[in-house]
């Protein structure tokens, strides 16, 4: 009895999933095709972006957009009082600046370090230059993440604290004595 119920529940789940997937397919198929990208320069730029944009550039772009968007979101947070809001904005700006600068520099340096012999995989000669470049980005990012486990404490945290305090002091009319 129990097993019959279980089977009927499973088959109900399967049929629900298959119906949902079929609806998804129909919606996707109903979306009209985009016109092919005609501009040759745009196609070249897209391809170049895929080859050249590593996690370091991604971190830099994320940081640049974060400095515009995140403080604005914190400044509009009406769930907290005025003073908390100001500190929250200052801390967010400080975190973005410190995180972006160290994140970009460490990722870039680690990706560069992948040219060292010890990081080259044994079968790197069998793949294309593009594939090897992508390997350097991936491996360099993994190494950078390990390095950042330490720099998060050693650089990011004190630098964020310093910048936050600097902005709070500036905001309240100079350093308190």
């Amino acid at each position: 009895m129990v097993s019959t119920n279980l089977i009927s529940q499973i088959s109900f789940g399967n049929s629900f999933a298959s119906k949902a997937s079929s609806i998804g397919k129909r919606i996707y198929d109903a979306i009209p095709n985009f016109n092919p990208i005609a501009n040759e320069k745009t196609i070249e730029r897209i391809a170049k972006f895929g080859k050249k944009c590593s996690s370091a550039e991604q971190r830099l772009i994320l940081g640049a957009t974060a400095i515009v968007m995140q403080p604005a979101i914190d400044a509009r947070n009406k769930s907290v009082d005025e003073k908390t809001r100001k500190v929250s904005v200052a801390r967010t700006i400080a975190k973005v600046i410190a995180g972006t600068l160290t994140g970009f520099a460490i990722r870039k340096a680690c990706i560069k370090a992948m040219d060292l012999k010890m990081f080259k995989p044994s079968n790197y000669t069998k793949v294309t230059k593009d594939a090897f470049d992508q390997y350097k980005n991936a491996m360099g990012t993994i190494v950078a993440l390990v390095v950042m486990m330490f720099t998060n404490f050693l650089i990011d945290a004190p630098f964020t604290k310093f910048l936050t305090n600097l902005m709070i002091d500036e905001g309240s009319g100079g350093k308190k004595k």
């Binding site: 996690s55 080259k120 995989p121 044994s122 594939a131 090897f132 992508q134 390997y135 990012t141 993440l145």
Partner: peptide, 24 residues
């Protein structure tokens, strides 16, 4: 490990950015 990374991400930079982002 190096060969696994080369095979997995050598031709999939978008996936690499998502996975290393999550790991980060």
């Amino acid at each position: 490990f190096k060969n696994v990374i080369l095979e997995k991400y050598g031709e999939q930079p978008g996936t690499m950015l998502v996975h290393t982002g999550v790991l980060g």
